[in-house]
Design a protein around this nucleic acid. Structure first.
Lengths: 338, 338
DNA sequence: GTTAACGGTGCAACCGGTTGTACAATCGCA
DNA sequence: TGCGATTGTACAACCGGTTGCACCGTTAAC
């Protein structure tokens, strides 16, 4: 066990150890072409010797960047992450940023208190950019970010939002995803469809349903749409309720793969075979989709790629790029449940 | 709509506008007793005029603090927040910090990539303190934090961990909570108990089970312990499985209130009355507990207070306080399901 | 042999705040 | 009137890095 080091080594110490000036030490560590190979080697050795890591505070002041990007969450975290696919989105962000020296941190701002603190730190320029995971039109924070000119990426479609010229936007086309799933059902000849969706106030759920409806029309009656949570238990429970109603149906569109997993369990317990009696289509292409029996036909939402995209746009905007909007496309993954 | 401001006003501008020096302006804004009331008024007016907010980078360098506290999450966020009570813990942290000027940010470090980035920013001293929400013994990050001497608070009991003298610890006594729930069952005369718990690898689950066992012994046989998720759907599904087994039982200990809600639904559907036929005890004192019919008897885990405590300890440690360990106590909330 | 070109290094300024200390102005009191 | 005490302000150094520019010593070219 080494002794705890309380005072971090400074650049001056490295420079002294290497017998050069601070500026030379700095340039050597930043691999400037103006420094000779030999000197660089000496400085690097000295830096390693004393375990030198450039202090974020000094560096931030000098270069005008903190190298921290805030991932802003304006709804309760538990709500956001009850849909486990979100962590894939986050992974996408992290993956992309890990190539750079930027660090993403999650900033929860669901209460007024939290929003005020967040606002304050935005004004202080504690973060180089903001990725808003759940933007909604009325957020005062967006207004603040706009005024401050902080590079901002919105993840999610904002109906005709007034920030198009200041903020970037990334979203995947949920309506298209809904159409894909519904078209698959239709192509299979299914006529009496049931939908087991996530929470009814979730924008993605609304858009997907619109997609279903655009294709299926009367084949998906209002009474057959059930809103629930995102988990397999929720799907299981919902399907039990549907079976209790004794209605005729030959296809189930699910709001998530986990819901679909629960649905399949319930169907099997009721003696119904998938896909012989009933077709099931999931959403997300979650890991669980391949483990279902039968393997789940599902719609892949490119969450990870969305994260990559959001991170890249943020980096570009930090470098001064103009705001952009990009739409990610859904993809039907054909497996055996249809 | 005001024009976006791209260049933040600096202290020098405020000073110029108020006709004083930078130092006087700084002291006036920080309410130093050495500045006259009249001057303070003038400087504050000037600051408001140009919309001045002290730049975090400059300030951090001068005062040696970033005023950002990292909430470190070393497991996937979705896993952590599938238990929605965790957001209450986070709220506790935020609430407490909102009195100060500190901002909590969540740092996900579940992948190696993420851990490396986190490590780097710890070394750079990007954060004044770290609150580790899910510490586990082997984490290299803890070792790094120890070496760096970064004030760190661990949330959760770490079996005989070697960091007692460097890190603070806050945890609530899950075993005690288990005993409380089990004692209530016993006091009601229940003899054949079933437990529907959260994931089997969750330390809290393990501790609670130990508490159950300490009180109930043979009244809670191994075969009657079911591990599942935290949600009502999970509880519902688990109870279905138990009912299918046709075993005799008169009490159900649940790992969360949401599980309990699902359990009660399933019991009712099976024609069993709560609490006449079966007693049910939850865990968490989640909002849902009061909405159950009958209202749920449960064990309250002081998560919000735990958050307060963790935040306070972090602030104290930043000021130089020694590490401490504090154990929060569970509380049985008597309602009607027992 | 003088000078231009050039590679390598250091000085000093700068980023935007905070803070120790010196100094000027005002006041009270002898 | 003269002195010290008190108050309010400004100068300058500092936090820990980065970077423009001047300077030095070589070497090559004339």
């Amino acid at each position: 066990m080494t002794q705890p080091v309380r005072t971090a080594p400074t650049l001056a110490e490295v420079a002294a150890a290497a017998g050069v000036s601070r500026s030379t030490a700095s340039r050597a560590l930043n691999d400037s072409p103006r420094i000779s190979e030999e000197t660089k080697k000496r400085v690097r050795a000295a830096a390693k010797e004393v375990n030198f890591v450039p202090n974020a505070r000094g560096r931030a002041l000098a270069v005008g960047r903190t190298e921290i990007i805030a991932v802003l969450v304006t709804e309760p975290l538990s709500e956001l992450f009850s849909d486990p696919t979100y962590s894939e989105f986050l992974s996408g962000i992290t993956e992309e940023l890990s190539e750079s020296s930027y660090l993403p941190v999650i900033l929860q701002a669901s209460s007024t208190h939290e929003r005020n603190r967040a606002r304050e730190h935005f004004e202080r320029r504690s973060f180089d950019a903001v990725i808003d995971v759940s933007p909604y039109k009325g957020s005062e924070l967006l207004e603040v970010l706009r005024e401050l000119g902080v590079p901002t990426v919105l993840c999610g479609r904002l109906e005709g939002h007034p920030y198009r010229d200041v903020f970037s936007t990334v979203y995947s086309d949920d309506e298209e995803g809904g159409r894909f799933a519904a078209l698959a059902m239709k192509g299979r000849g299914r006529k009496d469809i049931v939908a087991v969706l996530g929470p009814h106030d979730n924008p993605a759920v609304v858009d997907r349903l619109r997609g279903y409806r655009a294709v299926l029309g009367e084949d998906l009656p209002d009474a057959n749409v059930i809103y629930t949570g995102w988990n397999s238990g929720d799907g299981y429970q919902a399907m039990h309720q549907i079976l209790a109603r004794k209605i005729a149906f030959d296809g189930v569109l699910c709001g998530s793969d986990r819901i679909a997993a629960g649905v399949i369990t319930a169907l099997n317990e009721a003696g119904l075979s998938v896909p012989a009696d009933v077709s099931v289509v999931g959403f997300d292409d979650h890991e669980i989709a391949t483990r279902c029996v039968p393997a789940l036909t599902t719609v892949r939402q490119p969450l990870r790629e969305e994260g990559h995209m959001a991170a890249n746009i943020a980096l570009d905007m930090i470098k001064g790029a103009e705001p952009t909007t990009s739409v990610m496309h859904m993809q039907l993954i054909q497996r055996d449940s249809l």
